[in-house]
Amino acid sequence: MSDDLLDRLAAEATPVPRARLPMLLGLAVAIGSAVAMLVMIAWLGLRPDLMEATGTMIFWWKFTYTAIFSAIALWATIRLARPGGSMRRPMVGLFALIAFAGVLGIAQLVIMPPGMSYELVMGGTALLCPFYIVGLAVPVYAATALMMRRLAPTNLAAAGFAAGLLAGSAAAWVYAFHCGENGMPFLAIWYTTGILIAAGIGAILGRWALRW
C-alpha cells in the first residue's frame, strides 16, 4: 500500500471538537422529532383542549416523563455510537425512571376511588397508544440510524435497541400533544409499552440498518 493514502488522510486532519458526536446525534433526533411532529399534526391532530391541558399536572408529567426518557436514551445512543460502548449505566437510569412512573401510577390508583381504576389504566385508547408511538418513531429512528451509520457502533443490536428507545421516547413526547388521556397508570403502562416495542424493533433492524 502506498503512502499516498496516508498523505491524503493526513491532509484532511481538520480539528474535531469533543462535542461533535453528541451534537450530531442530537441534531438527528431534533430533525426526526420535527418530522414526527408534522406527521402527528397531519395524521392525528393536536388535542383540541391543548390550551386547557397545559394547566394540568398530568400533561406536564407526560411531557416530563417522555423528555427525561429521551434524554437518557440519547445518552445510551451516544455511548453505543462509539466502538465498544456499553449502555449499562443509562439502562439503570431508565429502570429507575420507569419504576418511578409506575409508583406514581399505583399511588393514583390508591388515592382515587376504586370505580375509576379501569378508566385510569385503560383510558379510551390503551391499545392505540403504543401503535401510534411506534408509528411516530419511524422518522426519528430513520434519522438516528442514518447518522449512526457515519459513526462507529460495534454492537449493532444494542446500538439499534438504544436508537429504538430514543426514537420511541421522542415519538411518545410528540404523541403527548395529541393524547387526551389523563391517567398516570395509563402513561406508565401504555407509553412505556410503545417505547419498548420501538426499541425491540430497533434492535432487530440494527443488525443491518447500522452496518458500516
Binding site: L9, V16, W212
Partner: peptide, 18 residues
C-alpha cells in the same frame, strides 16, 4: 482490510472518546 480500517479510523475519528 488495512486500507479500509485506516479509512474508517479517519472518517470516524470523532467517535473516539478522549
Amino acid at each position: 482490510l488495512v486500507q479500509e480500517t485506516l479509512m474508517a479510523i479517519h472518517t470516524r475519528r470523532l467517535t473516539y472518546d478522549v
